[in-house]
Amino acid sequence: MVPLSWYVILSSVIFSIGLFGFLARRSLIMMFMSIELMLNSVNISLVAFSHYLQSMTGQILVFFVITVAAAEAAIGLAILIALYRNKPTVKVDEVNILKG
């Protein structure tokens, strides 16, 4: 039997790896991918809990998380494309016109 805590530890580790990627990468594409990674880590945790608490709620939630993640990825990439058209870069520290 795999204890629940192992799944949760795995989820935390992947989450923090995703967090690091989100904060530290300069390319917007990589930042989006890190976001997907973070969402997946949460999914793992939810499914684990669903299994160990013998409830379907976790899986339903994962269902919704996947849906929303897909929608958000679509829109985020659309914004990225629109941004790229204005200024042909995806480096996040070059889009800083709104600085004070």
């Binding site: 935390s12 580790v13 989450f15 923090s16 790896i17 967090l19 690091f20 904060l23 530290a24």
Partner: peptide
Amino acid sequence: CAGISVIMV
């Protein structure tokens, strides 16, 4: 950022 991630874990 690395430090933050470690703290998060």
